[in-house]
Simulated scan of single mutants.
Amino acid sequence: MSEPGGRRVQDLERNADAALEVHRDDAMAMVSGTLGLLEEACAEAAPDAGPRVYQLASSIVDLAGFFDTGPLFEAAYSLCDISDRMIQTEAWHWPSVQVHAQALRLILAGGCRTGVTSGALLAGLKSIAQCR
Rank of each mutant, 00 (worst) to 15 (best):
E40Y: 02
L104A: 11
C42H: 14
L20C: 09
I87D: 04
A27C: 10
P47I: 12
E74Y: 01
I87S: 04
G124M: 04
V31R: 05
S59F: 03
L56E: 02
Y54S: 03
S127D: 15
A19W: 09
C80F: 02
I87A: 02
A57G: 11
S96T: 02
Q55K: 10
A76V: 01
L37D: 13
A129G: 15
D68I: 07
V99L: 04
S83D: 04
L79I: 00
D11W: 04
G36V: 11
L104Y: 14
Q55D: 11
V61K: 13
T114M: 05
F73Y: 14
Q130W: 11
L122A: 06
S32V: 01
R85S: 10
A75P: 00
E13P: 00
P51N: 12
S96L: 10
A57C: 09
P95K: 15
V53T: 03
G50S: 08
C42K: 10
E13A: 08
D48M: 04
R132V: 11
D84C: 07
I128Y: 02
A43E: 11
S96E: 06
S96C: 14
G115C: 04
E3N: 15
E44I: 07
L108M: 13
P71S: 12
E90M: 01
Y77S: 14
C131Y: 00
C42N: 12
W92F: 15
V31A: 04
G5S: 07
I60A: 06
D17G: 06
Q55E: 14
S59M: 04
L125S: 02
Q98K: 15
G33I: 08
G6F: 08
T69D: 00
C80N: 09
L38I: 06
D25G: 04
E40H: 08
G50N: 12
L106C: 02
A75R: 05
G36S: 05
R113M: 07
C42T: 15
V22S: 06
G5W: 08
D11I: 04
P95D: 12
A123W: 15
S2R: 00
E3Q: 12
V53S: 03
R105A: 03
L122F: 12
G65M: 13
R14P: 07
F66V: 02
S83A: 09
H100G: 01
Q130Y: 06
V97H: 08
N15Q: 14
D17P: 03
G111H: 10
I60R: 14
S59K: 09
C131W: 00
L56P: 09
A27Q: 07
